[in-house]
C-alpha cells in the first residue's frame, strides 16, 4: 500500500486514524459506561412498590366507638434480604359501617400511641401528643399533623386497609 511506503505518510489515513481514536474510545466508553451508570443510578428512578393491603378482620368484630388495635407482621423486601417488621394500625368506627384506619405511628416522631381510656383519646407517650379518636385530629402536644388515615375497603364483610408509611415530623402527609 502506498500509505506504508517509508517516509510517506498519507494525510487521509492519519485523519481517519485520528477520528478512529476518538470515535472508538467514545464507543467503548459508552457501551460499557451507559449500562453501568444506569445500574448505579437505578435506585433513584425506581418505580414505587406495589400496594400492600392488610386484612384486618370481619367488620362485625369491631364495636362502634371503641378503637381496636391490630398488630400485624409485615414481610419486608429489604433489597435482597427478607425481613419482618411488627406494625400496627388502629381501627375506629362510629356506626359499624364506615371505618377509619390510622397508621399506628404517631405523626410526630413515630412512637406507638395508645388509647387513653380515661380521657377517651389517643395518647402518645413519648412527647404527650393527643389525637381525636373519630377524626385523628391533633388535640394537644407537638404532633405536626393529624394521624395518618389509610385507604380502606370492605369486601365480603372483611375489612382491609392499604398500609403505607408517611414522612414523620412534617405538616404534610407525604408517602415514604
Amino acid at each position: 500500500m502506498a500509505t506504508e511506503t517509508p517516509g510517506i505518510v498519507s494525510v487521509g489515513r492519519r485523519t481517519f486514524l485520528r477520528w478512529a481514536t476518538w470515535i472508538g474510545g467514545a464507543a467503548s466508553g459508552l457501551l460499557a459506561g451507559v449500562p453501568a451508570l444506569r445500574a448505579f443510578l437505578s435506585p433513584t428512578f425506581r418505580r414505587s412498590r406495589e400496594e400492600k393491603w392488610i386484612r384486618l378482620g370481619e367488620i362485625d368484630q369491631f364495636d362502634p366507638e371503641v378503637p381496636t388495635k391490630v398488630d400485624f407482621v409485615d414481610a419486608v423486601h429489604d433489597a435482597w434480604v427478607q425481613t419482618r417488621r411488627l406494625r400496627n394500625v388502629w381501627i375506629y368506627t362510629a356506626d359499624g359501617e364506615t371505618f377509619r384506619v390510622y397508621n399506628g405511628r404517631c405523626t410526630h416522631l413515630g412512637c406507638n400511641y395508645f388509647l387513653d381510656e380515661e380521657k377517651n383519646v389517643f395518647r402518645c407517650p413519648c412527647h404527650t401528643g393527643f389525637f381525636d379518636l373519630k377524626t385523628g385530629a391533633v388535640l394537644g402536644g407537638p404532633p405536626p399533623r393529624p394521624l395518618d388515615s389509610l385507604e380502606v375497603k370492605v369486601e365480603d364483610g372483611i375489612l382491609y386497609a392499604r398500609y403505607q408509611d408517611f414522612h414523620l415530623g412534617v405538616p404534610e402527609k407525604a408517602e415514604v
Partner: peptide
Amino acid sequence: HGGMRFWPDVLGKDAVVSAATV
C-alpha cells in the same frame, strides 16, 4: 524509518479493535 507516530498511527488502530471487542 517510516515516520510513524504513536498517535494516531498506533492508537487509532488500537481504538478500532478495542471498540470492536467491546
